[in-house]
Design a protein around this nucleic acid. Structure first.
Lengths: 203, 203
DNA sequence: TCCGCGACCATAACGCTGTTATGCCATGCT
DNA sequence: AGCATGGCATAACAGCGTTATGGTCGCGGA
């Protein structure tokens, strides 16, 4: 059994698999969940539906892989914000980047959190390690603000979980089209919420 | 009893429609989104798939009706909390009822906020008036706390939107199975979040 | 009373879906 | 060379949402 390790060290190394994943994410973002199907994926990648099953095993696994890819993009996007000497302001800047990423890829964002089931084929969800890496990224920002004295010292993970809950909840309401609830032209609800939370968490 | 069954003043008066809606909500809650189909709905209600289309027009409309029913149940559940002379504590009690309702009907809760929902067949979403009634219920609790001086006077809708965002975001993370992020045995993240928000909103 | 009409639904079909069985073919190991 | 195996095309199957068709039943008008 060790003989086959030479040709295929890692399944992710396949070029076909990469194109399937890329096209799946593109179709999901551009045309929504109902447009993502195995046959559609096969035609746009120039293969057949069997390619999906050799590389992923099921369409649900494709959706999971797309969700995982969404977390990777989120991590890249939030990681690209330039840190200043004000860790509290950086937390708000990260929230801005988080919101922009969600607004640009709304379907992908919804799939990441299982908010929408793509045609009822629900997988096991995104890769837990990647999703947790996105959380740890936020924890690092929080702990940095604590170390600088801008946030009251405490459990960074507990504070990050609160921050993420508030941010995620607002995004879901905004993406769900609940404009009457969430759209406040003069005083944007999200920034009031972030500032209120920040005030309670400050020293 | 002159022609009590003859006239059809409101389509909702149909008994078949009521059973379809009831069974749809039950199937969704007990077996998840992938189990809800037109044929399944027809067999369990003892009719054919055409009944779905005569009473709803499409499966998407059924999902929308189920989502609207979910908001009605939420309103009933939150409206059942007994108000005390501490409006701030009542807000927390309402959050407890909100969470219990979501945990008991997780799939229904997800459908309520899913712009695109079951099996990729996206309807127009739940009845906006009913969903907004749930929001107004929360606004009333907030304004009551403001009038009693337990919350700083301000825009009740803006504060209610923040409260709902935080609560909804935590629920979505909890229901998404992100236990590592959100599950904190000793200090439950939700109550820390609610108390932090309450502190910032207090006078 | 009878007729007709409209609401309601059972049956069957169409095109789509995810998935699987089968077989071909190229590649690499022995 | 022979063979085994991974990778994919073809075609099929069951199930999906939806629609066309036809039948049945009950009421309103003549």
């Amino acid at each position: 059994m060790l003989s086959s390790m030479s040709s295929v060290p890692v399944p992710e190394a396949s070029a076909v698999r990469a194109r399937l994943l890329e096209e799946a994410a593109r179709i999901l973002d551009e045309e929504g969940p109902s447009a993502l199907s195995s046959r559609r994926l096969a035609t746009v990648t120039g293969t057949s539906t069997m390619a999906v099953y050799t590389h992923f095993g099921s369409m649900g696994a494709v959706v999971d892989a797309v969700a995982t890819e969404g977390f990777r993009r989120l991590i890249d996007r939030v990681g690209a914000v330039e840190l200043t000497d004000d860790p509290a302001a950086d937390l708000l800047a990260a929230a801005v980047a988080y919101r922009e990423n969600a607004l640009q890829n709304p379907h992908l964002y919804a799939v990441m959190f299982g908010a929408i089931s793509v045609r009822g084929l629900g997988g096991k969800g995104p890769d837990a390690e990647v999703a947790y890496a996105a959380f740890r990224q936020l924890v690092a920002l929080v702990e940095r603000a604590m170390a600088a004295g801008r946030l009251r010292p405490g459990d960074g993970k507990a504070v990050a979980a609160q921050w993420w809950s508030a941010l995620h909840g607002y995004m879901m309401l905004e993406l769900a089209g609940m404009d009457q609830v969430v759209r406040d032209p003069e005083h944007h609800v999200l920034w009031q919420l972030m500032e209120n939370l920040l005030r309670s968490l400050s020293t």
